[in-house]
Structure formats: structure tokens, C-alpha cells
Design a protein around this nucleic acid. Structure first.
Length: 657
DNA sequence: ATAGGGTTAG
């Protein structure tokens, strides 16, 4: 009797609440609504609740979620029913309860999604979210997974600062930060770091200083970072250290080492690793698709595509199914060598295996067609791609723009770019950089400058390449002052000037200021071990153009003696210099020298020699030189051949009849 | 988790 009375009363309240719904503004009315919902929820009367959902106010909902925060099923069911009509995101606390519940049920994907929504759409900072998570649950759910998830949400949104702020806050509050959270953070850092993983090592040391022990994932990250820095031996040492401390390496560990070896062209090491994976891991690890793809990529990048393809066969023999990446790598390998017929053959093989070429495959081939000057072929392949519903991506756009530029259609490239920008399809600075470069090269630095400004307007942040390209543009224009101003900008925005930037400035100094000043810069760079063959070539060229014969020869000998690599450009600079001095015989001798050193003359060598010889030699001598170069595998520069060599051939009478 | 395609220097 008492029970039924109670039920009656409750029902009465419920109906009232339903009628008055949202209009209730007095605390009392809200109280009734709240209680009505709670009662129905406890009895899992979802149908009543669905009717009520339109009456749920923003202040009631959080209270309900709070009330049921210990009943995951209720929270999730309520969330699903309610989120259709109301935004749970409106209340940070509600959202945190849902997130926590999802994490407890190991539903990390949805928890991640909600966290990201809170940050992107509601503008909450990671710390604000953390604060509420801690307030609501600290005592009830000692669950680190929710903090791990928050760190992950930050890194997936690209916010290193956010991720670190969470870790830092937890630590200063005396709360536990899991190794997973650290690994996730470090993983993000190592990927955004430059070639030298400064920040990664900094934070890794911090983690170790708190007494953490590395797990497999951490060790893999360390190996990855070392490989990225091209320190293969150090990476292998870490591998042994890992074994010593009883951590069992997995296939990812090996793949990182294999890839690291391939990227520095240490194919022997890579192969040894692959052949010994089983033994080195105590029979635990066997190569997988990724292993083979790394190996194939290594050979392809060295130009040994045929060897790469043999590994495709081996992989199939061992029962591993190649994937699109495998074929895409081979297509790229053949394309780079200019063997498009072979590239298409691989595409066919891929289709036969039931794999569809994706945008990467198309991009690769389109790029090559543009390089070969086949604008029509490239654009028809682009149409084919769109017809097959393979959407062009940011690579396609860049390749298309660059392809148009390099074939002399700068205006078309600019209007295509405009189109892409208007559709908001530009994600990074890449395509801008390409056009900026071409504008600079076509002496239109003002337009290049405007393009940089438009990036800021669009919210695109110029990267180091943008700055480097502008610096080079100003240097080539002879405006060293502006170049230095851009350099100062790089420092201001806390970016790292790289070697390319320094080499550009160096060239500018040689040409516009003095080679003596350039010399000082080179000394400074060598002091920080930041120099390469281009640095030396640029200085060598500087000596040559300012007529410092002694210094030029000195540097050349030093480069050979100190085993600083000497390449075909080095010889081209010297050959050009000899020609300018009228010492064509010396220049020709240099060609033999370079060949004996295993360095092959290119079309620049050809043009340099042919052009200067043309001035003072007979037609026979010019043609003889042409034959000499062609026999040594040089592809003559078409323009030079047409304007200089061919007329001479005709002159002698060997022309086509 | 690890593997494939586009930019800057002589």
C-alpha cells in the first residue's frame, strides 16, 4: 500500500515534470525533473526517458550523469540516447563523465573523439579537461587510462605542448603518469623533430630521470630516433642493450633497424638483419610485409630496382602477400630511373593481384611524366585518376603545379593553385613553396613575396623551405640585405636554419659581397660540423669567380685529401673555370680525371665544354667532343645540341641528307 | 607503433 502510494506520487511528479519541461526555472521544478529522471533511469525505463529528452535542460543533464557516474551502462545508454537531441559537449563535466565511462569500458576511440571535440569545438584546453576529470573521479576511479587517452588526444591533434602540460600537471600533483603516456608523447615528438631529434632526447632524458624503465615501445622509439639521425651503429647497440635488460624485441624493432640501414644505403647490414631475424630474436620474430617493403625501398632508392623486384618474388614465395605499398615502391623505383614501361608493367602485376593503384602510384607516374616533359601524358593520367574516383591529394596538387612550372606554364600553375587554395585543399606549405621558387627563378620576387603574405592570410605557416627559398631568391637577385632580414625572421619564429639556408647565403656572399666574408661563414659552419659537398662547391665557385686560382686549387685538393665528397658539380665548376681562362685542353683533361675517379660527366659538363669550345674551335673539334661525351654516357642537353652541335654536324656534311 | 609519392642549395 505504501509502495503503491509512493509510486503514484512519483508518477504524478513525473507527469508534471514532463508537461512543464524546459519552462521550469525555479530550483524546485528542476529538482522534480531531476528526481523523475533518476527514478526512471534506476528502473531502466528508457521509453519514459526518451519522451523526457526534449525537456532535459543543460543544468539537469550534468546532474543526472553525475548521479549515475558509477553505472557505466546507464551512462553510455543515456549518452547515446541523449546525444542525438542534445549536445553532451555543452557541459564539460558531463562530457568528462562519459569519457571516463568509455575509457573504463575500453572504448578508447569514442573517448578520444569526445576529448578532441571538447578541444576543437569547445576550445577547452587539455588542462581544463584534466582538472574536471580529476575533480569528478579522483577518489572513485583510480584509472590512468583516461590520462593516457588525454595525452593521446593531444598528440593526435598535433599539440605537443598540450600533451606535455598534462604529463607535467599529473606529475606535480603527485599522480601517476604511465609509461604509455610517456611513450605516446615521445612518439609524437620524435615525428615532429627535425633530422636531429633534439626535443626527443631532451624529454626522454627527463622521463628516465623520474625513474621510468623503458619497455619495448620505448626502446623502439629510441632505435627509431637514432636511425632518423643516421646513427645505425648506435641503434644496433641499443638493440643489444635491450636484449641485455631482458626486453624482447619485436618485428617493429627489427623493421626499424632494417629501414635505418636501408636509408643510409647500408644494404649489406639490412640484408644481414633480415636473414638473421629469427636467430637474433630467439626464433620469436619473422620478417613481415613491412620488412620486405623496407628492403625493396632501399634497393629501389639506390637504383637497383631489379634486385628490389627479386625480393617481391621472395616475399611471395615465403607466403607473404605484397600490398599496395610494395608495388608503389617498385613503381617509384622504375619511374626514378626513367623506365616507365617497367613501371607500368608493375602496375599491371599489381592489378592482377587484385590490388588497385592508389593516389601514391598515380602521383609517382604523373610526376615522372612531367619530368620527362610529357605534359599531355601527365594530364590524361590525372583525368584517368579522377574518373576512377581516386581523389587527388596534396601530393597530386604539388606535382601538378610543379609539373606545369617546369614545363613553362607558370600562369596555368598559378591559376590552378588559386583554385586549390579557394577550395581549402592546401594543407601545408609545400605547393606554395613550389610556386614561390618558380616565381623567384623567373625574377618575379615581388609576386613570390605576395604569395608568402597570402600564406599568412590563409593561416598557413611558412616552413623552413619557404624561408630558404625566399633567401635564395633575394640572394640571386643580389639583395643580400633582404636575404639577411629573412634569416632574422627564421630566428624570430624560432625555426632552425638548415644547411640549405646557409649554402644559399654563402652563395650570395660569394657573388655579392666577397669570397673572404664567405670564407668566414664556412669556417663557422665547419666549427659546428654543419657543412656538405655543396658548401665546399659553393666556396670553390666563389674562389673561381673572383679569380683566386691558388685558393680554388687549394680547396679542391683539400676536398679530395680530406675525403670531403667531391662530385660532378665540383668538376663542372673547375671545368667551367678552366674554360673561362681559355684552358680548354686542361678542361678536357679534367673530364678524364673525373671519369677515373668514378664520377661521370653530366649534361652541364657537356654544355660547358661544347659552348666554350664553339668559340674558338673548328666544327670537327666540336663534333668530336660531342661524340666523346656521348660515348661516355652523357645525355646531351637538347638545346645545346640543337643550337650548337647539330649546325656543326651539318656544316661538316654529316647531317641528314 | 615500423614501410611507398611532392619543395629549397652548387
Amino acid at each position: 500500500m505504501v509502495l503503491s502510494l509512493f509510486g503514484l506520487k512519483r508518477r504524478h511528479l513525473f507527469v508534471r515534470a514532463l508537461h512543464l519541461g524546459k519552462q521550469f526555472t525555479t530550483p524546485n521544478a528542476e529538482e522534480i525533473l531531476f528526481k523523475a529522471i533518476c527514478v526512471n533511469l534506476r528502473e531502466r525505463k528508457w521509453r519514459f526517458l526518451d519522451q523526457l529528452s526534449s525537456s532535459l535542460t543543460n543544468s539537469v543533464l550534468p546532474r543526472v550523469f553525475h548521479e549515475f557516474r558509477s553505472s557505466p551502462h546507464v551512462v553510455l545508454e543515456l549518452y547515446q540516447r541523449v546525444s542525438a537531441s542534445k549536445s553532451v559537449l555543452d557541459s564539460l563535466e558531463t562530457c568528462c563523465i562519459v569519457i571516463q565511462t568509455m575509457v573504463n569500458c575500453k572504448n578508447y576511440d569514442d573517448a578520444l573523439f569526445l576529448m578532441k571535440e571538447l578541444m576543437i569545438r569547445r576550445g577547452y584546453s587539455p588542462l581544463e579537461i584534466l582538472e574536471v576529470l580529476l575533480d569528478t573521479f579522483a577518489s572513485r576511479f583510480p584509472c590512468d587510462a583516461v590520462f593516457d587517452t588525454l595525452v593521446r588526444a593531444c598528440t593526435e591533434l598535433g599539440s605537443s605542448e598540450g600533451a606535455y602540460s598534462v604529463i607535467e600537471k599529473l606529475r606535480t600533483e603527485g599522480l601517476f603518469v604511465s609509461i604509455h603516456a610517456w611513450n605516446n608523447f615521445l612518439n609524437h615528438i620524435v615525428k615532429v623533430d627535425d633530422d636531429v631529434c633534439c626535443r626527443f632526447w631532451f624529454f626522454y632524458k627527463e622521463m628516465v630521470s623520474y625513474g621510468y624503465f623503458e619497455n619495448v615501445y620505448t626502446f623502439n622509439l629510441i632505435i627509431y630516433a637514432l636511425c632518423k639521425e643516421c646513427k645505425l651503429l648506435a641503434a644496433i647497440c641499443v638493440f643489444y642493450k635491450m636484449l641485455k635488460s631482458g626486453i624482447v624485441p619485436n618485428v617493429v624493432t627489427f623493421n626499424m633497424l632494417v629501414d635505418g640501414a636501408c636509408r643510409i644505403s647500408e644494404m649489406d647490414v639490412a640484408l644481414k638483419l633480415v636473414r638473421n631475424v629469427r636467430i637474433m630474436s630467439g626464433g620469436y620474430v619473422v620478417p613481415n610485409i613491412v620488412t620486405y617493403n623496407c628492403l625493396i625501398n632501399g634497393y629501389c632508392k639506390l637504383g637497383d630496382v631489379e634486385i628490389g623486384e627479386r625480393f617481391l618474388d621472395e616475399m611471395i614465395e615465403t607466403g607473404l602477400e605484397p600490398n599496395v605499398r610494395t608495388y608503389a615502391t617498385l613503381v617509384d623505383g622504375y619511374s626514378r630511373k626513367g623506365m616507365l614501361d617497367e613501371a607500368f608493367r608493375v602496375c599491371d602485376a599489381m592489378v592482377e593481384k587484385g590490388l588497385m593503384p592508389n593516389s601514391v602510384v598515380y602521383n609517382t607516374v604523373i610526376h615522372r611524366l612531367y619530368v620527362e616533359g610529357d605534359v599531355d601524358g601527365a594530364s590524361s593520367l590525372l583525368s584517368d585518376m579522377i574518373e576512377k574516383y581516386i581523389s587527388p591529394d596534396k601530393f597530386t596538387h604539388s606535382i601538378h603545379e610543379k609539373g606545369l612550372c617546369r614545363n613553362g606554364h607558370i600562369n596555368e600553375a598559378l591559376s590552378y593553385h588559386k583554385c586549390i587554395v579557394e577550395k581549402n585543399l592546401t594543407e601545408d606549405a609545400f605547393s606554395h613553396n613550389i610556386l614561390i621558387d618558380y616565381l623567384c627563378k623567373s625574377r618575379n620576387i615581388l609576386a613570390a613575396q605576395q604569395l608568402v603574405c597570402s600564406m599568412f592570410v590563409r593561416g598557413l605557416i611558412p616552413d623552413i623551405v619557404t624561408y630558404g627559398t625566399m633567401i635564395d631568391g633575394y640572394c640571386k637577385e643580389g639583395n643580400i640585405n633582404r636575404a639577411v632580414e629573412v634569416y632574422d625572421d627564421i630566428i624570430k619564429v624560432k625555426k632552425n636554419p638548415n644547411l640549405v639556408v646557409y649554402n644559399s647565403i654563402l652563395d650570395g656572399l660569394c657573388k655579392e659581397v666577397s669570397v673572404d666574408v664567405a670564407e668566414v661563414l664556412v669556417e663557422e659552419l665547419k666549427g659546428t660540423s654543419l657543412y656538405d659537398v655543396i658548401t665546399h662547391n659553393t666556396l670553390l665557385n666563389g674562389y673561381c669567380i673572383s679569380g683566386k686560382i691558388d685558393k680554388a686549387l687549394d680547396l679542391f685538393l683539400k676536398m679530395r685529401k680530406e675525403r670531403i665528397s667531391v662530385n660532378e658539380v665540383t668538376y663542372n665548376i673547375l671545368i667551367n673555370f678552366m674554360c673561362k681562362l681559355g684552358l680548354i685542353q686542361h678542361a678536357k683533361e679534367l673530364v678524364s680525371v673525373m671519369i677515373t675517379q668514378g664520377i661521370f660527366p653530366d649534361c652541364i659538363t657537356y654544355t660547358t665544354l661544347v659552348t666554350s669550345m664553339n668559340k674558338e674551335s673548328s666544327a670537327e673539334e666540336v663534333v668530336e667532343l660531342h661524340d666523346y661525351m656521348v660515348l661516355r654516357g652523357v645525355n646531351p642537353d637538347g638545346e645545346t645540341y640543337r643550337t650548337i652541335v647539330y649546325p656543326r654536324i651539318e656544316q661538316i656534311g654529316f647531317g641528314l641528307d
